[in-house]
Design a protein around this nucleic acid. Structure first.
Lengths: 334, 334
DNA sequence: TTGAAAGCGGTACCAA
DNA sequence: TTGGTACCGCTTTCAA
């Protein structure tokens, strides 16, 4: 029951490995193999259940037909969906996906990237921490193509695909302002990554546009998003008299909404709420929560497309495109 | 910048590949390599940034240090969490994870399992469709260890780890009965998989225990869970006068709850609600929804443990343990 | 039209 | 204590 190899087929038929290899890799035409030989080989391959050995092929070709996916947390609905789409897009092109979660920890991130690298993935899709430069440089030097998603690293020139966080946020804040909110608080985490930074920037810009001077006291940074800190953050903002709260991500919104529920705060009576990342929970919430939906499917599709293009273009230098896809505001009852 | 190989090091130092290989694989002691040689090799390896070639190693050893994960949908919060825990458990043991989503489609499942197989994963963790026997037999014949999770396949003797669906459901239904519900409807999908089958069995058993004859008219099967069908299912049950609805999975509960919200049904005034699979949404819902939480972390951990044990015990025959972990009922306001 | 042989990068047996 | 060499399975160049 041990695997049939090319050699086995060659021995069986009394032809050479070369011939078998040529037939099996569809080069019968080009290499002028006789139809008869070709058919005998194909038949033997079928009856012996021949399957090319992945390692041998990889050893020679250097290709694994596998891509690596590194995100902060595959369990987060945003990244879980991204993983799902990436998987199906990759499969269409005969690629498999290996995934890892960095937990926003750059040390772990470094370790995981090296692991993916050592497993010879043909390329990677990475939502990096803000300290990934060195590791990514290493990839670059070793000609491993990669695409950044969700957060960009301005200091390195790498292709990026993500949401237009600035416009998305501005639209959301503008909506809140139009509903009469004047003292909008924010809860954010990991503000050093580009996406969050831009969401904060969008927030400030919108206020200024409306003639309101942003008050830094109303921006609460909860570090890596521990839920106790988030609940605390809600309390802080409430004590500072906000009339609205902007959650900068789903991971913040969930504990945040829980806290508001526990405190029996009336939404939008006492405070309005707006959130980045739309999810079932937002529309099912009572009242339904206004949220900005990221174009995650498009991000995933484009990331795979760009990555595979780069994999196939190994060697050639590309301009490092930076793609920003528009977000979509869902105004609801909050 | 191309990778340094063992040969490069050997050439550089004027020693043989054998020596280098032995030093690098930590056999200096055993193979009695002189300390001096060892140090020279180690130093050269470090300065040339030597890293063993994954394919070459795999070609010889047959091992990939990778496991395959096949679930119906990695985006589903239950499986997303499972994926997350499996990843971290696997990493502790130096394994990477490749994932695939079968979409409950046995044809796709077969294709994906074969793909994982061809990529030489050392083992697989699979939440199978009810038609996976043949493919799994193929794995078995080829000595690829695998663990079934979430749903068991009684017809084949394979290790399984999942939730005790029967008890979990009985507890939930008993709770609903104790609150006075008498006409409990059910919406389920893919009832041919063991987990759902057991949930339905638990439902019927509980009713009988309470002296109520189960009415098959109150069990709506929505096939593969298209959300239009689920909404329709809710309508059907309501028209049949149920005083409670049991959703057999989170994927059913979400569209189901949406429909109830759209219809402005008062929960639990008009109908009570209970669901399998706890998630943030359940406790944040107004009113909070009573739900059965599956021990997904334990399932994932145990699956990895059993799998790796089997990988390492290749050849030995094991009893095929079937592990059922207890579910936890969260009674809430619905 | 087909085959022999070298090589991809390690590992391990058998000698020395 | 160390080295030569065959082999894992596939691809491809060069010869016939």
């Amino acid at each position: 029951m041990s695997k049939a190899s090319i050699k086995d087929i060659a021995l069986l038929l009394g032809v050479s490995k070369t011939t078998v290899s040529w037939v099996l890799s569809g080069q019968s035409q080009h290499r002028k193999i006789s139809d008869e030989t070709r058919d005998r080989v194909l038949e033997a391959a079928k009856s012996l259940h021949f399957e090319p050995n992945y390692f041998a092929k990889g050893l020679y070709s250097g290709r694994s037909q596998t891509i690596g996916l590194l995100v902060p947390d595959v369990e987060n609905p945003f990244f879980a969906r991204m993983a799902r789409i990436i998987e199906s897009e990759a499969e269409k092109q005969q690629y498999s996906v290996m995934y890892c979660s960095s937990e926003e920890d750059s040390v772990k991130e470094d370790r995981l990237i090296r692991m993916l690298y050592s497993k010879k993935v043909d390329g990677m899709i990475i939502a990096p921490t803000n300290h990934a430069e060195e590791t990514l440089e290493h990839l670059h030097r070793n000609n491993v193509p990669f695409i950044l998603v969700d957060r960009d690293l301005e200091r390195i020139s790498a292709p990026f695909v993500g949401t237009d966080n600035l416009s998305g946020t501005r639209e959301l804040i503008a909506h809140m302002l139009s509903k009469g909110c004047r003292k909008i608080g924010v809860i954010c985490s990991v503000p050093d990554i580009s996406s969050v930074r831009l969401r904060l920037e969008g927030y400030r810009a919108s206020l200024k546009m409306a003639g309101i001077e942003p008050n830094e006291q109303l921006i609460v940074d909860v570090g890596y998003g521990d839920s106790a800190c988030i609940r605390q953050g809600v309390d802080t903002l409430l004590s500072r008299g906000v009339d609205a709260i902007f959650f900068t991500a789903n991971s913040i919104a969930i504990p945040g909404l829980k806290r508001l529920k526990d405190l029996k705060i009336n939404i939008p009576g006492q405070v309005s709420v707006g959130s980045f990342d739309d999810m079932d929970l937002m529309s099912l919430h009572e009242p339904a929560i206004t949220a900005v939906e990221q174009p995650v499917d498009d991000i995933a599709r484009m990331a795979v497309e760009l990555l595979i293009r780069r994999i196939n273009a190994k060697g050639e230098t590309h301009a490092s495109e930076k793609v920003m896809l528009p977000a979509k505001l869902h105004t609801r009852d909050s």
